[in-house]
């Protein structure tokens, strides 16, 4: 979109979505708050400024930008964003991870939740799927973009590098991929568990255009994604290395892998909500 972003509105959305995330994981006492909180600005920027998309969801998404989430465990931020963007009633967020819900622990198409186009959760698959969707857009002469988000720990999966090789070879230049670089994975810091080393050099060596931006400043995310659009469509896919802080917005969750997959208790929920103003009304 070309119009000036309303950053005040985007920040209010981010605050509300963060409230939604902690309330969702608290209610079911499971799920992944850390990465969800860290990627809130990314989803807000995509769904409320960057992407052309229709909440009256259509699986084929012809003429629309498409969003894929490869690290499916951060489903809370995606669900909350989709609900706030009008894909379904925010009240449904209260069903997250409960039986008979469309909001499965990890994103799925099986229950027909609007906005989800493929299941994810088993890591390393989303980049390949998004390449396929981008390839089909080219065949259909559809000039919209495909966006995909991966985790940094996920870079340890071999399939990611199969896809990394394919996209430049086949000139998939309508694809804008992003890695959430928060430096954490379940067992600890990524550099301790399995070093990723220089991701920029790696992706560049595979033939991608690589840029980096701060993922927790909405202005930077919007600027970064707008710049990605300018870098795209020149024969190469684009990779954003998006530096975020896991747990961003809730002080006691920040800067540690501990909140990767742990839900807050009643007390902790209160503490978290006190730091996140209710801007659009809780569900």
């Amino acid at each position: 979109m070309s119009q000036q972003p309303d950053f005040d509105r985007l920040k209010k959305l981010a605050s509300q979505i963060r409230r939604d995330i902690v309330r969702m994981v608290h209610a079911c006492q499971s799920g992944h708050p850390g990465g969800s909180l860290g990627c809130t600005e990314y989803f807000v920027a995509l769904y409320f400024h960057i992407m052309k998309h229709d909440p009256k969801f259509n699986m084929d998404g012809k003429g629309e930008d498409l969003c894929f989430l490869s690290n499916g465990h951060i489903s809370p931020v995606w669900y909350a964003t989709l609900a706030r963007a009008g894909y379904f009633d925010p009240k449904e967020l209260s069903t997250f991870r409960f039986i008979n819900s469309r909001l499965q622990g990890h994103p799925a198409t099986h229950e027909h939740l609007p906005g989800i186009r493929v299941a994810s959760g088993s890591l390393g698959q989303g980049l390949s799927v998004s390449i396929g969707a981008a390839q089909t857009k080219k065949l259909n002469n559809d000039d919209r973009f495909v966006y995909v988000l991966m985790g940094d720990g996920e870079q340890q999966e071999g399939q990611v590098w199969e896809a990394a090789m394919y996209a430049p070879h086949h000139k998939i230049d309508n694809l804008i991929a992003t890695i959430d670089v928060n430096g954490q994975q379940i067992d600890g810091p990524t550099e301790k568990i399995m070093s990723l080393l220089d991701l920029k050099a790696k992706w560049e060596a595979f033939g991608w255009i690589v840029q980096a931006f701060d993922g927790n400043k909405i202005e930077e995310v919007v600027k970064g994604l707008e710049n990605a659009q300018k870098l795209a469509k020149k024969g190469k896919p684009v990779m954003n290395l998006m530096k975020t802080e896991m747990g961003y917005g809730v002080d006691y969750m920040m800067g540690s892998h501990k909140w990767h997959g742990v839900a807050p208790n009643d007390e902790e929920l209160k503490k978290a909500l006190a730091q996140l103003p209710e801007t659009l009304g809780d569900y």
Binding site: L66, V118, I131
Partner: peptide, 8 residues
């Protein structure tokens, strides 16, 4: 994965 994506 690509095949799955191409159906979309």
């Amino acid at each position: 994965g690509i095949a799955a994506g191409m159906t979309i």
